[in-house]
Design a binder for these strands. Structure first.
Lengths: 148, 148
DNA sequence: TATTGTTATACTCTATAACTATA
DNA sequence: TATAGTTATAGAGTATAACAATA
């Protein structure tokens, strides 16, 4: 990727700056997680299930911002990987998602890699700057939901 | 997408906050650009070609951070859309990319929509905060290139 | 009727590998 | 040998639509 200045007027837009920062960060995280057989999207699912054991696929999908069909695919992949399992849910329609023992190990690695990645990716920022960035990003996030 | 707090330890990571802020912003921009037949990625290509008339596909791909094959696909799509054309380049291997008249009109709309989107998406930030965010994001960007 | 999950299908964006032509 | 572009193929991630089972 060339310098953002290559995009002239667009380069002055926060949106493009935000996007390219994210693309780079995600590429770095992808590489870190690859040895464990998961992408950042799947890793996030693992963490969600770990924190919400027994959750159904609808709530996982809602958390990830994806629909039912995409959630099925994500769950299938993690099941094939041996990280999670579908157990009988609160009624006969729903599955209860749980981590397996291997999934627990995976989660620990995911959290470690994610932490290390965060440290490396944002190493150029001071603690104050990180706090500022976090605050500013959260402010955007809570708003853009209202956007049409 | 649920609150980022749903991801526990991960929710404290800047990377996830950054990513979700970007996902939301890009979704909003996608919707704005859809009526014009372009995605944010294609729109960025249009702007690059407008600023670098006669550029070849390699330099466009470098600017977008994608490889040769993906660049061919992007250029094909924009050509089919009637926004750009391939002309003979600096030697018989290279194409010179140029906007058509329709492409110029498209570019004007892209810049307008992108500007409006930026205003809407970052409306909750003051001018000072926007400047801060831009500075912080640029700081990350210039570093994460060195990341493995 | 509404909800949960599934399947089939398709679309976007990306990549790798093998190829042509030109330099 | 190296560069520019192309094509074929594949993979990740998403979506819509139609369906079954259950509530």
């Amino acid at each position: 990727m060339e310098d953002i200045a290559a995009f002239g007027v667009l380069g002055e837009r926060l949106g493009l700056t935000l996007h390219y920062a994210d693309v780079r960060a995600m590429a770095g995280l992808s590489m870190r997680l690859a040895p464990f057989g998961v992408t950042p999207a799947r890793a996030t699912a693992v963490v969600y299930i770990a924190l919400n054991p027994g959750c159904d696929q609808m709530s996982l999908g809602r958390a990830l911002g994806i629909n039912r069909a995409s959630t099925v695919k994500a769950v299938n992949e993690l099941e094939t990987l041996g990280a999670i399992e579908r157990r009988p849910g609160r009624d006969r329609r729903a599955n209860a998602l749980h981590l397996t023992a291997a999934g627990e190990t995976l989660r620990a690695r995911i959290e470690q890699e994610t932490l290390e990645h965060d440290r490396a990716a944002f190493a150029s920022l001071s603690a104050d700057e990180k706090a500022q960035l976090s605050r500013l990003l959260s402010k955007i996030r809570s708003d853009s939901a209202a956007e049409g």
